[in-house]
């Protein structure tokens, strides 16, 4: 499912113009992005939670030249599905 399909389904479901629904869908995911970028975590009851996980710096290799390079520490967004979602998907 793409974002356009998501917008269409939501728009049908709640009977709201596609244009307005699109703005809302974008707002929803942009506000999750904003919260994460401030280091905040996002908890969505019934769905799951988004938080940041730290990746330590490590040594890697340039696969082309074989030169050793240090890959710096970074943060990655991590999604943990809620219990309800986890169980429903598995059944």
């Amino acid at each position: 499912m793409t974002k356009a399909e998501l917008v269409e389904k939501v728009s049908e479901k709640i009977n709201l113009a596609k244009k307005d629904t699109e703005v809302i869908v974008n707002t929803v995911f942009n506000s999750i992005t904003d919260a994460l970028s401030k280091g905040d975590k996002v908890e969505l009851r019934g769905f799951g939670s988004f938080r940041l996980r730290k990746r330590n710096s490590r040594e890697g290799r340039n696969p082309k030249t074989g030169a050793t390079v240090v890959i710096p520490a970074k943060r990655i967004p991590f999604f943990k599905p809620g219990k309800d979602l986890r169980e429903t998907v598995d059944n």
Binding site: L6, V10, T21, V25, V28, G46, F47, L85, T88
Partner: peptide, 10 residues
């Protein structure tokens, strides 16, 4: 609306 966004994804 917000609820239905997550429901549709789910």
């Amino acid at each position: 609306v917000v609820e239905s966004v997550f429901t549709v994804v789910k």
